[in-house]
Design a protein around this nucleic acid. Structure first.
Lengths: 169, 169
DNA sequence: CGCGCTTGGTTGCATTTTGCAACCCTCCTC
DNA sequence: GAGGAGGGTTGCAAAATGCAACCAAGCGCG
């Protein structure tokens, strides 16, 4: 197996987007709020009740999510007391991360079969496990992976490296 | 409104493994430590230097990861001053979650092209994006997904479709 | 209009969790 | 033994969290 130990020397000198992601989502309640949002929760009081989170913390977390562009805050026109928090595209794209985390918890936790579960609308079957895949879609196990510096990548195929799943805007 | 409200009522009463996962990995440094571990870091001083984390916090986090079975702590036989922290299978299986998070950060962050990158050993090509897939492997977008109660799963016939609203792009 | 009610917040503390230094203890090497 | 690594523990200041109580705009009604 190749050299598994890349520079990494200092976390911020090394270009890794993980700290960036964690800055937005690394707090304790962030993912729980996100989950509620994915479940259709949109209003402050709803979040507060569903999560049993302190109001000031909730307020702070929602603001932060809005600041990071993960949720959008909209004062409702028909009743201007109400504020609607809605996931943005950026927020929606956290779904794989959230599901991966949840599936992991499900597998290794106390056998909790999570509910509700995500199903594919076309056949009503639950989704499969979130996995690491090769550029061509093959599922890869940890043993089949190596860390490489960007500079030493094989230019076997140019354009395929960058296929983003959602490109419609 | 409020028909969509799934149990979820109280975070721990509702069966969701996310809180469970977050209990293990929800702290600020946990994922960073994990990342270092994936990069081949094994020793206390290494983690400390790579992450610039306070020693007491590092100590605490490592213990917690060990307690949660994510890392194994082993005093090395040939030099009993040294302790080797190693990812367990449970820890290794956090890789999809970590990669999903990192890819998200990469896509939405300040255009940081993360390095090092995971490549498939068979063709040296970088891995593809972590996605949600159907049971048969098709990649699913958010619009193709619905939350369902476990109790109303199996039958392929009845569709009680209830989609979470997605803002128009 | 005035009055209560709802929604979405803000205080003002007490309690935890971080983080920084400095110190400590064990084991190795000479 | 002396000295130094490796892997921790203090002790104390600074931040983040959590709990209650309070505030204030915007309805809706008489």
């Amino acid at each position: 197996m190749g050299k598994l130990r890349e520079p990494l020397n200092d976390i911020y000198g090394d270009n890794c987007a993980l700290p960036l992601a964690l800055e937005a989502m690394g707090e304790r309640w962030s993912f729980m709020i996100l989950r509620a949002a994915f479940n259709g929760v949109h209003h402050f009081e709803e979040f507060q009740q569903e999560l049993s989170i302190a109001r000031n913390i909730l307020s702070n977390r929602l603001s932060r999510l809005v600041d990071h562009g993960i949720m959008a805050r909209e004062v409702m026109a028909e009743d201007r007391r109400k504020v609607r928090y809605q996931l943005t595209q950026k927020g929606i794209e956290l779904l794989p991360a959230m599901i991966a985390l949840r599936q992991w918890g499900e597998k290794w936790g106390a056998g909790v079969p999570s509910t509700p579960v995500l199903v594919d609308t076309t056949d009503e079957q639950p989704i499969g496990p979130v996995t690491i895949t090769a550029h061509d879609g093959r599922t890869l196990t940890y043993g089949e992976l190596v860390w490489k510096h960007r500079s030493e990548l094989q230019p076997l195929g140019q354009a395929r490296v960058r296929m983003a799943p959602v490109a419609a805007e």
